[in-house]
Each structure stands twice: as structure tokens, then as C-alpha cells.
């Protein structure tokens, strides 16, 4: 059948060297510059990074949701079970979206059609992808709502979105996304618009559903707490590139890129002394109208070397399955990683 079924080691979704550009009045924005990642069935990959670094554009371009034009995928592949869904443009086909890949968004309050019953909005997906009758699809929609922990699902399915709270709407969105039991669920900042207790419930729900049907989750977030709770692997994005990727433990405890270290240092914890202020990363990300030739983090990096300005850093495998896009790991670099850690922790 599918490649992943035949070979359990192969990733369900394998994105390679993805480039996305946008034409704007100010010029061409190179929003995504050679992003690669993969995610396996039953696993969660978190993509983290600050606003505007290209996280959402990456996943939306894979889903074919960026407006084209002005958007454009200039290079790269995204293999879903061994079939490229980007270059063949089959992502626009119904088979992928909503069926094999589900997606949930940041703001559940505006993500549902206000003039359509919630149950119908779920049923619609099943009618289109599964060829269910209206009745059949609605019954299944009620089941899916129950799976998404919505109490009194048969009553709720007949209500309109305005009757739902924010957390309930996000559950309904999740129900829409999982209705066809997708192989991959893309969650684009699913908890950013929700308050903290609801956040935890939504994350637990996602984990629970993943255990149940073994889907892979690509989680976009800028909340490292959410990453620690949810992810198996992490990719850190900066200025349209993935600068570090590895397992959660690798990235959290053995961070190999100065940007990751900066993010961690900026995060306050319960043990941070009261008198110590926050430690932000100074400066702003580079202008993506004219991305730098060298390292995107060069201007803000406390460990920058002369080579970092003009030359693009190599992708170095610092540990098995733990990569960093940084000159510091070059054999000729004067500073070692352990030295780097000491400096940051001091």
C-alpha cells in the first residue's frame, strides 16, 4: 500500500529544501529558504521560532493554502507517503487536504463558518472525501465531536459556532481535522489564542488522539513550554531557515545553535531570581527582502565570527539526528560547543 506501511522507518511526511517567495510592492520576500524536516507516524515534530520566521508559511505552502500569486514555491519537495505533493500540485486535489493531512489554526473564533451548523461543517469533509450521505456524515460528525471531548455532542452538532466558547471551537476544529483520520495533523499555533487551562486540555486532547490513531503531528508554536510537553523532535526556525533540529532532549539540554541558546536564556523559569530581569535576544531578525549571504543570525549572535558574515554556515550533524546550521561546529572553529554552553550558562 503506502511506503510508510511497507517500511515503518520511512517518515510519513518528508519535506526537502523548500523555498517559498512572495511578490510584494516592496520586492520579493524570501519567506522560506531551504527548509527540510520529516515526521514519522505517531510522532510529533515541533517547529519553533519567533513571529515572521516562516513557520506558518512553510506548513501552509505544503497544504497549498498560501495565495498563489503572489506566493510561489520555487524549489523543494514534500513527500507524503512517498508521493511529492508540492511539485505535482496534487495538494490542491481533494485527496490530500482534509483527508490525508488535517490542519488546525490559531484563532478558533474566526476559523469556523458563522452561518453553518458545527456538525455540518464536520460532515461536509466526510461527504466530500468519503462520499458519505448527509445523514451518515452527520452521525459520524457527532461521533468525532465526542472523540474531541465535546459533551452532549449530538446537541452541540446542531448549534452554530457563536454558541461555542473558544476552547470548544478549537475542539470542533480538531474534530474537523481528524474526521477523515489523516496521516498527518498540522497544528498551526493551536493554543496561542486560548487561556492557559484550556491550552493544556487541547494539548492533552491532541496527544490522546495521536495515541489512538497514530497520526503524525506537526506543531507550530513559539511557546517552548508547549514544545516540552508535546514534541518528540524539534526544529528551530530563524529567518526562513531551520537552524537547529533534533530530539527534544538534544535541543533543550544540548542546544548547538546560538539562537536556540538565546531563546532558552530568554525564557523565564520558576527558579529565575526575582531581581533578575528578562534576557531578550537583542536586535531584530534580518530583512527577508534581501536575506544575508551568510548566517541569518549573524547580526544578533554573541558568538559571531568573521566567517559568519559573508559565508553561509554548513549544516553540521553535531550528534546523530541532531543538526545545527552554524560555523561554530566547523573543525576549524576556535570555540567548542561545550565552551559555548559554559558561556551561555554563566
Amino acid at each position: 500500500m503506502t511506503a510508510s506501511a511497507a517500511n515503518p522507518v520511512a517518515p510519513v511526511l518528508d519535506v526537502k529544501d523548500l523555498h517559498v517567495e512572495f511578490d510584494t510592492y516592496g520586492g520579493i520576500v524570501k519567506a522560506v529558504r531551504g527548509v527540510s524536516f520529516d515526521v514519522h507516524a505517531g510522532k510529533t515534530l515541533a517547529i519553533v521560532g519567533e513571529s515572521g520566521c516562516g513557520k506558518s508559511v512553510t506548513v501552509q505552502s505544503i497544504m497549498g493554502l498560501i495565495p498563489m500569486p503572489p506566493g510561489r514555491i520555487t524549489r523543494g519537495t514534500a513527500m507524503l507517503d512517498g508521493v511529492d505533493i508540492v511539485q505535482q500540485k496534487i495538494v490542491n486535489g481533494r485527496d490530500i487536504r482534509g483527508n490525508r493531512v488535517g490542519m488546525i489554526f490559531q484563532d478558533p473564533m474566526s476559523a469556523l463558518n458563522p452561518t453553518m451548523r458545527v456538525g455540518d461543517q464536520i460532515a461536509e469533509t466526510l461527504q466530500v472525501h468519503r462520499g458519505y450521505s448527509k445523514r451518515q456524515a452527520f452521525d459520524r460528525a457527532v461521533e468525532v465531536l465526542t472523540l474531541a471531548n465535546i459533551p452532549e455532542a449530538d446537541k452541540r452538532a446542531r448549534q452554530y459556532p457563536f454558541a461555542f466558547s473558544g476552547g470548544m471551537l478549537q475542539r470542533a476544529m480538531i474534530a474537523i481535522a481528524i474526521a477523515c483520520e489523516p496521516a498527518v495533523l498540522i497544528a498551526d499555533e493551536p493554543t496561542t489564542a486560548l487561556d492557559v487551562t484550556i491550552q493544556a486540555q487541547i494539548l492533552d486532547l491532541l496527544k490522546d488522539l495521536q495515541r489512538r490513531n497514530g497520526m503524525a503531528i506537526v506543531l507550530i508554536t513559539h511557546d517552548l513550554g508547549v514544545v516540552a510537553r508535546m514534541a518528540d523532535d524539534v526544529s528551530v526556525m530563524y529567518a526562513g531557515e531551520i537552524v537547529e533540529t533534533g530530539s527534544v532532549d538534544d535541543v533543550f539540554y544540548r542546544a548547538a545553535h546560538p539562537y536556540t541558546l538565546g531563546l532558552k536564556a530568554a525564557m523565564p523559569s520558576s527558579t529565575t531570581p526575582k531581581d533578575q530581569g528578562l534576557r531578550p535576544i537583542e536586535g531584530t531578525p534580518p530583512d527577508l527582502f534581501a536575506p544575508p549571504d551568510g548566517c541569518g543570525y549573524f547580526a544578533r549572535c554573541p558568538h559571531a565570527m568573521r566567517v559568519c558574515g559573508p559565508s553561509h554556515p554548513p549544516n553540521v550533524e553535531v550528534d546523530p539526528r541532531h543538526n545545527a546550521l552554524c560555523w561554530l561546529h566547523h573543525p576549524d572553529a576556535p570555540r567548542t560547543v561545550s565552551e559555548l554552553h559554559r558561556r551561555v550558562q554563566a
Binding site: E124, T125, V128, A177
Partner: peptide, 15 residues
């Protein structure tokens, strides 16, 4: 946003 959702659901454009 809800049109984006509809597209993410894979609905045909006419629908």
C-alpha cells in the same frame, strides 16, 4: 479564516 479552513478541508472550489 473560515474560508481558509474550508480550503484546508479540501472542499471543491464551487462548494
Amino acid at each position: 479564516d473560515f474560508i481558509r479552513t474550508a480550503r484546508a478541508k479540501g472542499l471543491p472550489p464551487t462548494r
